[in-house]
């Protein structure tokens, strides 16, 4: 615990492409929360896309190479030993690359060949540890630390915590999960629940924490995505939630987009508020709603937050 506490205080920050686009508010709120908590984020120099699901579909080994390059830069050009990725896709892919390089010699060979041709050092497994923004806050500050720092409690806000697919599946790329007390669970993840509860929020019992929003086909098979999202939104509402908290830019924009699409194309209006967990934590730490980009969200929660003394 304490080793991680020190180790994670300064991490290489890998925002990924989505955080420069639709996930802008997540980027902003993650940085602001880091600042408020006295944690140090050093952006990975000249980073590239991790390959996402799309490149994996074209060729899995290219995705492994792309992710390995990010880790190689962090380790060999910045001398860092932890990479923190707030996007589930990036986090998942870096973990997957680590697993593949360790367990599949063919992947390791391809990565070595491509790294040499591209002119950078080949990433060696174990050089960096990849963590999610949730691990980062939880290990450095923790629930107790957060409680001490809360200025505006989130009390009275009922939250459904949504983790999506890539944070827990497939299990084998996350060896540190399901590893006994204190570790994250792949079937019922709780790190986000724990942090938000420490900030005063009331978490509802939400059975679809790791359901899929159909993000893979958000544009190529939109009706399927809308159906899947609608199920998630309605279940959260039935569970009594005012807000769905997210920890991934793709999940977040999937819920936002298809909430509107469900209304426009299916005539189903749910109107649930969707906020990044870093936006919620930021406001609990006393930051203004604008500062954590609440006005950039599509679902409108400004009035709701004001009524509760936030923002």
């Amino acid at each position: 615990m304490t080793a991680k506490k020190e180790k994670y205080k300064k991490v290489a920050y890998y925002p990924g492409c989505a955080l420069e686009g639709t996930g802008h508010a997540y980027n902003r709120s993650t940085k602001e929360v880091g600042k408020a908590l006295g944690l140090d984020l050093v952006e990975v120099k000249n980073w590239n896309c991790c390959g996402a699901m799309e490149v994996k579909n074209v060729d899995p080994k290219i995705q492994t190479y792309l992710s390995s390059r990010v880790m190689s830069v962090a380790a060999n050009e910045m001398d860092m030993d932890v990479v923190m990725a707030p996007c589930n896709g990036c986090y998942h892919n870096l973990k997957k690359a680590e697993y593949d390089l360790k367990n599949d010699s063919e992947s390791a060979k391809v990565v070595d060949r491509l790294s040499k041709k591209a002119g950078h050092k080949t990433y060696e497994t174990g050089q960096v540890e990849t963590i999610h923004a949730l691990d980062w806050i939880r290990e450095t500050i923790g629930e107790d630390g957060l409680k001490e720092r809360v200025k505006n409690s989130l009390s009275g806000i009922k939250i459904a915590n949504y983790y999506g697919c890539m944070y827990t599946r497939p299990r084998h790329i996350f060896p540190e999960k399901d590893a006994g007390p204190g570790s994250e669970s792949t079937s019922k993840p709780h790190f986000m629940d724990d942090l938000l509860a420490a900030a005063g929020a009331e978490n509802v019992d939400f059975p679809l924490k790791t359901a899929c929003c159909g993000g893979a086909h958000t544009l190529s098979d939109s009706d399927t995505s809308t159906k899947l999202v609608l199920n998630i939104l309605k279940t959260a509402k039935l569970a009594g939630a005012d807000v769905i908290a997210t920890e991934c830019p793709t999940c977040h924009s999937g819920l936002e987009m298809h909430q509107i699409r469900a209304e426009k194309n299916f005539g189903e209006k749910v109107e649930i508020k969707i906020l990044y967990f870093t936006q919620l934590l930021g406001m609990a730490l006393g930051l203004k709603a604008r500062k954590v980009g609440v006005h950039e969200n599509i679902s409108d929660s400004i009035g709701f937050l004001k009524e509760r003394g936030l923002g």
Partner: peptide
């Protein structure tokens, strides 16, 4: 297939 990996799990 939406690549949710529930099957893989």
């Amino acid at each position: 297939c939406v690549s949710c990996n529930k099957c893989t799990y």
